[in-house]
Amino acid sequence: MSRLTHSEVHMVHRIGWLRAAVLGANDGLVSTASLVVGVATAGSDHKAILIAGLAGLVAGAMSMAAGEYVSVSSQSDAEQADLARERAELADDPAGELDELTEIYVARGLDNSLARQVATQLTARDALAAHARDELGISETVETNPVQAALVSALTFAAGAVVPIAVAFFTPAEQANLVVAGTTLLGLAVLGALGASAGGAGVARGAARVVFWGAIAMAATAAIGALFGVST
């Protein structure tokens, strides 16, 4: 492949949707499984366990979507405000902004003359883009998208939540807590490994950290279920 047609794909290109996807699936699996385990440990019947799981799926997916949308929208608003301020500064004091961009490149290791040349050429091409990227740290690669983050979070939460609900559906109520906990830990290990692999991190470490926190969450809800159980 020639250098003219070669296109590199780096992990940072995935960060916008990867973070929301991993968070959503992990939260859906852990929170719903913990809810099911807690209700099952309390001695609830099969119907109550499934209703609790389905309620957790719907509420959690909506909560994740709303939370991601608000959070990412706030970040996007901040970015747009910074861009508007930078646009006004470029209009009011273009020479000063050129000096500022030059100083940024000097601080990164270029000598003064080369830094000035680079700043001048980038300013001539697209001054706002140059300042957004090199002064503010805002680029198209990491630009926030509230709707995308909300949809990805809701869908991946639901996908993660389906696992413990499906397991509980096919498992007798008296065994649901142990079976759901075991399959959830396995699912978390797979999810952690996939997330780490997609992000370019260590697979074993990624799996271990989500399994650990998932086990803690389910142990806590199981303890509550046992403490306030309706039957023995």
Rank of each mutant, 00 (worst) to 15 (best):
G67K: 03
G187Q: 06
A176Y: 01
V147R: 09
H10A: 07
T41D: 04
D111C: 02
A66Q: 05
A132V: 13
A223S: 13
A132L: 12
R209T: 15
I49Q: 00
I15E: 12
A208F: 15
T123W: 07
V72Y: 08
A95G: 11
A115T: 04
I49T: 00
L155C: 14
P146Q: 14
L4C: 09
S139M: 02
A78T: 06
V163R: 01
G67F: 11
L18M: 13
Y69I: 10
L54C: 13
A127P: 10
E89K: 07
N145H: 15
D92I: 10
P94F: 11
E89F: 03
G24L: 05
V142T: 15
R108P: 01
I51L: 15
A223I: 05
P94D: 15
E103S: 11
G182D: 00
R87S: 12
I216Y: 01
L114A: 06
G137Q: 09
A207L: 10
V162S: 13
V203C: 05
P172H: 01
A78D: 03
D126A: 15
A132G: 11
N112F: 07
L4G: 07
A217R: 12
L191Y: 03
L90D: 13
R3G: 14
V39G: 00
G53Q: 01
T123V: 10
A59R: 02
A52K: 01
G195W: 06
I51Q: 04
V147H: 05
V72M: 11
T183H: 05
A107T: 08
R3Y: 06
